[in-house]
């Protein structure tokens, strides 16, 4: 069963998403590897995939530090990586 396709906006750029995948999966599928920048300036991306490591945090609809691996994509989402 396929879920409906739509776009979400990430750092001002539209990327493909569906309502049956998490935001982390959608960002990785779009080739994004810098979800956040670490305190010493390194690029970071998901590690645990299940909400415990906090490496995938991004700003979603203006709310900072949202774990992309715990959020399901929703139409109209505006995402900013913390880079």
């Amino acid at each position: 069963m396929m879920s409906r396709r739509f776009e979400i906006v990430v750092d001002g750029r539209p990327i493909a998403a569906t309502g049956d995948r998490t935001l982390a999966a959608a960002l990785l599928n779009a080739g994004i590897v810098r979800f956040r920048t670490s305190v010493t300036g390194e690029a970071r991306a998901p590690l645990c995939g299940m909400g415990s490591c906090f490496e995938c945090r991004v700003r979603v609809n203006g709310v900072a530090h949202q774990r992309a691996c715990l959020l399901v994509c929703e139409e109209g989402m505006i995402v900013e990586t913390e880079s």
């Binding site: 569906t18 049956d20 995948r21 998490t22 982390a24 999966a25 959608a26 990785l28 599928n29 998901p46 590690l47 645990c48 995939g49 299940m50 490591c53 691996c69």
Partner: peptide, 15 residues
């Protein structure tokens, strides 16, 4: 990624 992390992301739609 973690092993479980990879599995979780695959299940969550990572291609």
């Amino acid at each position: 990624l973690g092993l479980g992390g990879a599995k979780a992301l695959l299940d969550a739609g990572m291609t």
